[in-house]
Amino acid sequence: MKTRTWIIILSSAVIVCAVLWMFILNSSSPSKIVGIYQDGSLVEKIDLNSVTDEREITLNGKFGKNIIFISHGHIEMKSAECPDKICVKHGALEIGGTPIVCLPNKVVIQFEETPYGADAKTGAAE
């Protein structure tokens, strides 16, 4: 084949790939994989984007029950029987936000990957 033909083929490949890449960059939604931990061990891993039906998870701890509510793209501590209920007041888990923590019952709900573009965050968990 002639060199010119090749140049045309290759440059069109570059253009097609560039368009494809722009498309991927715009369409990809951040992954929302959330891990629920109790006393350091994983209870369940959920991709919030693939949740279709609403459901609840009940965990039993030293200070009674924690009820976690899950729907599409959303997770929150619905109710807790621990004394301070900080985890319930925290509201829904936000991208880049602090994890939902119930200290008395040792429950943590957090994103599996750090979504804030850094390896760690200072001063967040207290």
Binding site: L10, A13, V14, C17, W21, I24
Partner: peptide, 16 residues
């Protein structure tokens, strides 16, 4: 596999 387009472009440039 999403990286494919970028890797193809970089392959073409680097290969040339």
């Amino acid at each position: 596999i999403y990286y494919l387009p970028v890797l193809v472009i970089s392959g073409i440039i680097a290969g040339a």
